[in-house]
Computed example of a mutant assay.
Amino acid sequence: MRFGVLGTGHWATVTQAAALATHPSATLAGVWGRSADKAEDLGSRYGVPAYTDVDALFKEVDAVAIALPPHVQAPLAVKAAQAGKHLLLDKPLALDPAAADEVVAAADAAGVATVVFFTNRFVPSIEGFLTANAQLGGWYAAHGTMYTSIFQPGNPYAGSVWRKEHGGLWDLGPHALSVILPLLGPVVDLSAAEGPRDTAHLLLRHEGGAASTLSLTLDAAPDATSFGFAYFGEHGATTLPEWDATQVEAFGNAVNALMDAAAGRPHPCDAAFGAQVTRILAAAERARSSSTIVTV
């Protein structure tokens, strides 16, 4: 499968392009970016053409891997789907549920495969944990904390405008939901509150009565970073395991998943799941601003 990378930032460079350039069953065929100079630099780094016209890139590839801000990603994903290209998308799929639904509709209409790269879901230790415990069932509570500190000198994401504007809710929230929903099920309604250092605190009620809490921030004090998920159920308590893969390896697994989906074996983390996550995050945004319980 021939891939084009849309995006020229840190994630596109060190994860997506790196994984595609070394993948045994995929070919990195070209790159496109909003900055022609950055696209040229990225193309030169991996020895592939850089395109200034995204439609010209579409003509040379079977699929696109997108590493762009969500409000830029969604309309380009629709355009790529309409051109008949399979979609390997980043999270969040969009910042607006309607835009996410447009991606789903375009992919369905074109008959192209979709995978959203919720990173944890392509790490074998974590996906194996979720699969086994979903089959076990009986989970009624979960607590997740994701406190990172990206706005520090030298951090590759410190200059990310959309992350600064939308915070941990939209950047970390998709990661958190991707490891909560498989065990506790869809979210029915939720409430949310703000905390110091742009922390978002969520209380979610799931179908069947389970409940979960999430605390998320990109701007934790440098010495107060934390990551962890705990689950509680009829069979006991457990925690999310540590990674057993690098980010590049995880993205390679997502490439495999997209090729499988194109062959008729869809992955759970498709655009429809990405749209579901977008709806939850949009509801959390409304709940946080209104101090009310919001139905998803």
Rank of each mutant, 00 (worst) to 15 (best):
A94W: 01
I150A: 02
P97W: 03
A158K: 02
Q152R: 13
T119Y: 03
D101A: 13
P174W: 14
G159Q: 15
G168I: 06
A132Y: 01
Q135L: 10
Y157L: 15
H166Y: 11
Y147S: 01
P124F: 00
Y147E: 04
N133H: 13
G144P: 02
K91N: 10
V161H: 15
V161T: 11
I150Q: 05
V123C: 09
D108S: 07
W162G: 08
G138W: 06
G144Q: 03
S178N: 09
A107M: 09
E102Y: 02
S149V: 14
G144T: 05
F129E: 06
A99F: 04
V112Q: 10
P174R: 12
P153N: 10
L95C: 05
T145N: 02
V103I: 10
V112G: 08
S178I: 08
N133I: 08
D101E: 15
H175A: 08
G137R: 09
T119P: 00
N133D: 09
W162K: 01
L130P: 06
H175D: 14
F122M: 06
L169A: 02
G144A: 05
L177Y: 01
F151V: 04
A106Y: 06
E102K: 14
D171K: 11
F129W: 15
L95A: 08
I126D: 03
P153W: 11
L177A: 00
N120Q: 04
A158R: 06
E165Q: 14
G137A: 11
A107W: 03
L177D: 02
A109P: 00
G168T: 06
P92S: 10
D90V: 10
A99N: 11
T145K: 01
V123N: 13
Q135I: 06
V104D: 13
D101P: 02
L88N: 04
A158V: 04
G167K: 11
W139V: 04
P97F: 03
A110E: 01
A105P: 02
A134I: 00
